[in-house]
Amino acid sequence: MPLKEKLWNRNFIIACIANFLVACSFNLLMPTIPIYLSEELGVPHSEIGIVLSSYAIALLLIRPFCGYWVDVYARKPLFLLGLTVFIATFFGYYFAVTVLFLVILRFVHGMSWALATVSANTVAIDIIPASRRAEGIGFFGVNTNIAMAIAPFVAVNIYESYGFHFLISCALMMGFLSILVVIFIKVPKREKLDKTPPLSFDRFFLLKGFPIFINQLFLSFGWGTLIAFAVLYGKDTGVHNAGVFFLFLAGGIILSRVTSGKFVDKGHLHKVMVTALFVIALGFVCFALFHSIYAFCISAFIIGIGYGTLFPALQTIYINMASSSKRGTANSTYLTGFDLGIGIGMLFGAYLGDHFGFSTMYLITAGFCLFALIYYWFISRKVFEKNRVR
């Protein structure tokens, strides 16, 4: 029996630490900006959706170019560049008192986050042994989920105790630490390209993965409604510290994510995907219908298990449909699917929440997830099997 390739080497550990730190800085703001806009600036829900989705629109516009850049140029310098601009943008929040300023600021933040995340994921995949790719992706993503568990819960408490500006200072501190850590990552050398690949659409988007991309939009719609409105929904239903939602959500993600990658590597990809889609839909139904602190937490945990199972499997689908020279393109397509779906979820979710209430919005989200399950089985599954390269 051949020995397993080592996953937890020095570079992978450093990459995981860096990923955790930058994810902490990012997730400190995600649940608190809607509260700040609603409670301190008096912004209606529909305009909150515009502010939140502006960063997703920026991600959508710049992400495909990031995939091309990391396939052509050195990945670590691009990672440091994106990270540095991302952290520097936090200073703008000290002066954010109007909706327009926040829209512009979130847009700039989204552009830098796009470069940082595409390059970070691609660097991580370069470091992870090919035979343990899905498992490695799962563990790498868990660091984001641990940050997502800790940061929003802590952020709501910091915001309520010390205010928005102190929260920004905390985000800056975590960001500076992430830059220092990234400096110590050693990225495997790649063969130099004889010439720069010509610009073409398939260098920005994995064309044969388009059906999977459409499938992904219905799933990431739900993620957009969660990060934008779960805290406000909790407050409406009487949950005093609705930041606890993210604690249970991330708990479910962490529990499932560290194991689902192993099942994918063993050849059970489609079973993992179908199970994940069903569990996510079930979690949203519970979230919409049952209104108590216990139901709030249990629903978050169920949704977390579903998304935690989904993330490494879905990313592996894209990676396994691309050649190594288009690994950045595959990653950017995967991340763009979330960007677009999250943006739609924030905008359309705000409309549904304003006109029909958050409960109806989350029931509709559950319906989208069930549709995604059917679509995957009859279309996406067959597309993957036809186009996989590994």
Rank of each mutant, 00 (worst) to 15 (best):
Y362G: 11
M361Y: 01
V285C: 06
V279M: 01
Y36Q: 10
T84Q: 13
F278P: 00
F229N: 07
H355C: 01
L247V: 07
V70W: 07
I214P: 00
Y94C: 11
G141I: 05
R132S: 15
V279I: 02
S220K: 02
V43H: 01
I57D: 01
M273W: 09
I87N: 03
S38N: 15
Y233I: 03
S119C: 07
T117A: 01
A58R: 14
N11A: 03
G341E: 15
V85E: 05
F205E: 12
I254M: 13
P31D: 01
Y68Q: 08
H268N: 06
F201R: 13
F107C: 11
I342V: 08
S323N: 09
P197K: 03
V264L: 04
G251C: 15
A350W: 06
V154I: 00
F263G: 04
T122C: 05
R133V: 06
Y55I: 03
N241F: 09
T89H: 09
L7M: 08
M173W: 01
I35T: 06
G224D: 13
K4W: 09
V383Q: 05
Y233G: 09
I253N: 15
A15M: 10
L21I: 09
A130H: 08
S38D: 12
T117I: 06
A23G: 00
S169G: 12
V272T: 12
D71M: 04
Y73K: 10
Y375W: 11
M174F: 11
A151T: 12
A228W: 03
W377Y: 15
L59F: 08
A228V: 12
S380M: 14
R381K: 11
T84E: 07
A114Y: 01
I319V: 09
T309G: 02
S325G: 03
T98C: 02
G234K: 00
I302T: 09
A114H: 04
A149R: 07
F229Q: 02
I125W: 07
Y351H: 10
I104P: 10
R106D: 02
T144A: 14
I302G: 13
A295I: 02
T84K: 15
I317E: 14
K208R: 04
Y73G: 13
T336Q: 10
G141W: 05
L193S: 08
V123G: 00
S53T: 06
T144Q: 12
V389L: 12
L7S: 04
G243D: 10
P188F: 07
N241E: 12
Y233P: 00
S112E: 12
T117F: 05
G337P: 02
F368H: 11
T196M: 15
I150F: 12
G251H: 13
A313H: 09
D194N: 03
